[in-house]
Design a protein around this nucleic acid. Structure first.
Length: 716
DNA sequence: GCGATCAGGT
DNA sequence: CACACCTGATCGC
């Protein structure tokens, strides 16, 4: 919950997401999204009175937020005081004090926040510097780097302060499976249940809040079943959502609610009252999207966990994970950061302790932090035929998002010229302390910082290797959620690699799945499994509690519930982390059926880090893309595989992995597949690596003496 | 009667 | 703990 007071230090004349107390005197209001905890005071009589006596006071928000807000009669009085600003369109706003006539100009840009429909971040630029207020956000790794308006020219803007959504800024939420992974898990569960008979229905136990629409749309699109909701008038002008929800209760997917909906469910009744259809009783399962619940699991879990005879938990998050937050902040690298939220048990100090090192004001360990990066940069430059430092950044920035129109950057230019100069000066100033000891010029400073921190993990938490044969995790990079700079991986899923503006937010999954995929895998399990195989590589990290195992197999539900949570141990996805054939052995297991999507590793002997798992029989666009840059073998493998190997009955045992393998696997988890091997590099020695990780975990500085493949670790 | 706040629920 | 609400009780205006 936001405990942001409403005002940023730099621009106290505006109030954001808080409308009570001191905020009543603001010259302009901003609403990042339509969640109640960001709307405190928004309908209070005091503010209403203020509006009535003013011609100037406006509330600025995104068009979708405006629509959602005005749907509620309680906020109708705002109608003539709301200004919808288009996302990613810098807008000049004059802040006029109506009593003194005093005026201050400020430029604001709305950036997509990926939290719920209409959610945005606000980027303020003016005399007191550039300030980013994130509101609530969920941005996958690398998404900040794809936001052109966070950049000026080829580098990230000089941002004075970030007011940050720190909801999950706690190592226990180190990794949260990407939106796509979670969605796919739910999709396959819903698919397998609803396909049993038409009387098998699913109740999505969602909280009363915007943010699940993305789920509804994707389920509806994939399964052709609309989602029953209590209300849909707020979407009347959003056909993309409207089409997929319904108030007709005779559907197999429900997201309706009732004050005591859990009681309903226990009585085999849907919140809307349905218990049977045509005299036939309904068979209902409930799926409860949760994040915190998963954060608390000690062991790694699937993105779907069965919690009872007919109840499931599905991992689902509106907020960025710990590692996503760190990735975001370390890319932005502001001078200051202020948490908007105190995470669970945390104190402000604790959060600040985590975040400050990612800010520019934090100088300690500066020197060693940059060293390996510089080396990497040269390596990368050579191999990618880049010719200068700016190109490095440029290449990265643009190649990861080739479909983003350049025009927007152009548009932002005129208004941000002054800002850009400002940024220049500040960056130079801020980098001087390490310049002396490195050979890098400031233009790449932010970029390098970002790279580094993308993975600098304190890999911590549990070391928990998957002891259960069961819990073999799927996570294979979901391009969207993790690989920002590794252009190809992102390109694979270009559509959802796009900055999550609201439209894209809804389309990404549909686009993710190529039509060919369906053809190749008519069965539901296969479709889901194949998608999940391309999910987040970060899930590989041992430090995560929430694994991104997205085994659609776990969703092979049976009416009797005999294949529940326990029997999920029999259903496995073998994935990227099973990169070494020796890491697992397969053997049949009498009685229990295990569905496995078999993956093959793209062989690149000299370069383990560049290896890439491909699912046999995978025939999706991203696989194709990967092949473009990968070896030819890869293509062959894929094709050969398509022929017959789709499902194999095996059991996977995963306890043969050595700690050393764990570490190596970790190091590759977010590496850039596309960066060729450093010519003179040698494979990391396990002991060296272990030492490195120990130091990293302890927060010690690390001085790399020579380039090794791990360096690419920083170059995600 | 309305609101703010808190307790208790999911 | 609280994602982001909801309901209900109490208190003050």
């Amino acid at each position: 919950m936001s405990r942001f007071g409403g005002r940023v230090r730099e621009y106290p004349a505006v109030s954001i997401d808080r409308f009570d107390r001191d905020n009543l005197r603001a010259r302009a209001y901003f609403l990042s999204h339509c969640h109640k905890d960001h709307m405190k005071g928004l309908r209070a009589p005091a503010l209403k009175r203020r509006l009535e006596g003013s011609l100037k006071v406006k509330l600025y928000c995104s068009p979708v937020t405006k629509e959602l807000l005005l749907t509620s009669w309680k906020y109708k009085f705002w109608e003539n005081h709301i200004v919808a600003l288009e996302v990613e369109t810098p807008t000049q706003i004059s802040l006029v004090d109506e009593t003194s006539g005093e005026k201050e100009d400020i430029e604001v840009t709305l950036l997509p926040a990926g939290h719920c429909p209409g959610s945005v971040m606000f980027l303020f630029e003016g005399e007191n510097g550039t300030v980013l207020y994130t509101g609530d956000f969920r941005l996958a790794k690398g998404e900040a780097a794809r936001m052109e308006l966070l950049h000026s020219g080829t580098r990230v803007k000089d941002i004075q302060s970030v007011y940050l959504d720190t909801t999950f800024c706690d190592p226990k939420f180190y990794h949260i499976p990407s939106r796509e992974e979670c969605l796919n898990g739910i999709l396959e569960l819903v698919r397998s249940w609803t396909s049993l008979t038409r009387y098998h229905v699913v109740w999505l136990n969602c909280k009363a809040a915007y943010g699940y629409e993305y789920l509804f749309i994707n389920l509806s699109e994939e399964l052709g079943i609309k989602v029953h909701v209590n209300k849909l008038d707020m979407f009347k002008n959003m056909p993309e959502i409207l089409y997929h929800v319904t108030t007709d209760r005779r559907t197999q997917i429900h997201a309706c609610r009732h004050p005591r909906d859990d009681d309903c469910f226990r009585g085999n009744r849907l919140p809307c009252g349905m218990t049977c259809q045509n005299g036939t009783p309904l068979h209902i399962i409930s799926i409860k999207p949760s994040t915190m619940w998963f954060g608390e699991r000690i062991k790694k879990t699937n993105v779907i966990v069965r919690t009872g005879e007919s109840t499931y938990r599905a991992c689902f998050s509106f907020h960025s994970s710990y590692s996503e937050i760190k990735d975001f902040l370390s890319y932005i690298r502001p001078v200051n950061v202020y948490p908007n939220v105190l995470p669970v048990g945390g104190t402000e100090d604790k959060v600040t302790e985590i975040l400050k090192p990612l800010c520019r004001s934090y100088r300690r360990n500066m020197e060693p932090r940059y060293r390996p990066l510089g080396t990497l940069k040269r390596v990368h430059k050579r191999d990618s035929s880049d010719t200068d430092e700016d190109d490095l950044f440029d290449t990265e920035l643009t190649s990861t998002r080739p479909k983003i129109p350049k025009q927007q950057r152009e548009e932002s230019r005129p208004s941000s010229t002054g800002q850009s100069e400002n940024a220049e000066g500040n960056i130079t100033e801020s980098t001087e302390s390490y310049k002396a000891t490195t050979t890098y010029t400031s233009p790449t400073a932010d970029f390098m910082d970002c790279e580094e921190s993308n993975d600098d993990d304190d890999d911590d938490e549990e070391e928990e290797s998957e002891k259960n044969a069961v819990q073999v995790l799927s996570p294979e990079p979901d391009a969207t959620s993790t690989s920002n700079f590794n252009g190809v991986t992102s390109d694979q899923q270009e559509s959802n690699a796009d900055v999550p503006r609201w439209d894209a937010f809804f389309k990404c999954n549909k686009l993710e799945e190529s039509p060919g995929n369906e053809d190749t895998f008519p069965s539901s399990a296969d479709a889901g499994g194949s998608q999940s195989l391309f999910s987040d590589s970060d899930g590989v990290s041992d430090s995560t509690h929430i694994s991104s195992q997205n085994s659609s197999q776990s969703t092979h539900v049976s009416e009797q519930g005999s294949q529940g949570w326990d029997s999920q141990t029999d259903t496995v996805l073998i994935s990227s982390q099973e990169r070494n054939a020796l890491d697992f052995s397969c053997f049949g297991k009498g009685g229990s059926r295990t569905v496995v999507s078999v993956l093959q590793e793209t062989a690149r002997d000299s370069q383990p880090d560049n290896s890439r798992w491909k699912p046999v029989g995978q025939n999706r666009s991203c696989a194709d893309d990967a092949c473009d840059l990968g070896s030819k073998d890869c293509e062959k493998d894929a094709e050969a595989g398509t022929a017959d190997v789709q499902e194999v009955l095996v059991e996977v045992r995963d306890n043969s992995r050595t700690p050393d393998q764990e570490l190596r696997r970790d190091s590759q988890s977010s590496s850039d597949f596309e960066i060729p091997l450093t010519p003179d590099a040698e494979a990391p020695r396990p002991d060296k690596l272990h030492c490195l990780y120990t130091k990293l975990a302890a927060g010690e500085s690390i001085l790399m003496r020579k380039t090794s493949p791990e360096d690419r670790y920083y170059l995600t």
